[in-house]
């Protein structure tokens, strides 16, 4: 009988957590239009976006390079190495750009957000904001939320662009694929709406999830060292799993059903 009670209790706990997270998200969304918050958002875009650039650039470059190398060895046996360009570009734009950026973003910025908010809670800074009649949802959560949602799609595009250049570096400059066919077949194959826009939509959805999880985990963290460490781990684990799961769903919706 006990397991049934536990099941009920844990389901209720999860549901109330989801409810609280939704309320927090609502607070974050509603708080957007305030003009006063714009400088705060820009400051956070610098922290979560600009400071994530290096890891995105390096990862994008190497993933593009590896893909060109792997793709070349397979394609060349069919004499189809001219299709290296579209292969690299489509894989990056449709899948790897949004997904890998999401995962990196969760590890780089998501964990930092959770730890920051969790520590603000532990040191009573959030409480003291409330007592100063400043809503922490508006002041702390909302700017970080919007900064993440604005930055991540851009980071994903930068990731794909750098990856395509990395593919060019290995495929064309090193392995000798014809530069003209690399670019021209890519141009002929990549579709703006189907590939680029869908990739941006994906990364937008991933951004929502990562930032939401990160902020909620920080905001609801138990204000002790173990609590914050647990919350930070959960942010990375939950948002990574959510990205991979949602990626399947989104891919099925965008490319699977014709």
């Amino acid at each position: 009988m006990n397991w049934l009670i536990n099941l009920g209790a844990s389901t209720l706990g999860k549901l109330s957590g989801l409810g609280n997270a939704s309320l927090m998200l609502w607070g974050g969304l509603v708080a957007f239009p305030r003009l006063k918050n714009i400088p705060l958002i820009i400051q956070q875009i610098y922290v979560v976006g600009v400071q994530s650039l290096l890891i995105i650039l390096v990862s994008g470059l190497f993933i593009g390079m590896v893909m060109a190398l792997q793709g070349y060895t397979i394609l060349v046996s069919y004499g189809a190495e001219g299709s290296l360009g579209p292969m690299v570009a489509l894989t990056l734009l449709r899948e790897l750009g949004p997904v890998v950026t999401g995962l990196l973003f969760a590890g780089r910025a998501g964990s930092a957000l959770t730890a920051e908010i969790g520590l603000m809670k532990a040191t009573e800074q959030l409480s003291s904001l409330e007592m100063m009649a400043v809503d922490p949802l508006r002041r702390i959560i909302a700017p970080r939320f919007w900064a993440g949602v604005i930055s991540m799609p851009m980071l994903a595009l930068i990731f794909s662009a750098v990856g395509i250049l990395g593919g060019h570096l290995v495929g064309v400059d090193w392995l000798g694929v014809d530069s003209g066919s690399y670019w021209s077949i890519m141009q002929a194959t990549v579709d703006w709406d189907k590939d680029v826009v869908n990739g941006v939509i994906k990364s937008f959805v991933f951004a929502l999830v990562v930032v939401w999880v990160a902020l909620y985990k920080g905001y609801s963290a138990i204000p002790t060292s173990e609590g914050i460490s647990k919350a930070t781990t959960e942010t990375v684990v939950f948002s990574s799993l959510a990205i991979l799961g949602l990626d399947f769903v989104l891919t099925a919706l965008m490319f699977g059903i014709n």
């Binding site: 040191t123 009573e124 800074q125 409480s127 003291s128 409330e130 007592m131 100063m132 009649a133």
Partner: peptide, 14 residues
């Protein structure tokens, strides 16, 4: 709340 204020034990400075 603007009429009240609270001094937290830790100070809670930003």
């Amino acid at each position: 709340r603007r009429k009240m204020s609270m001094l937290f034990q830790s100070g809670a400075l930003f």
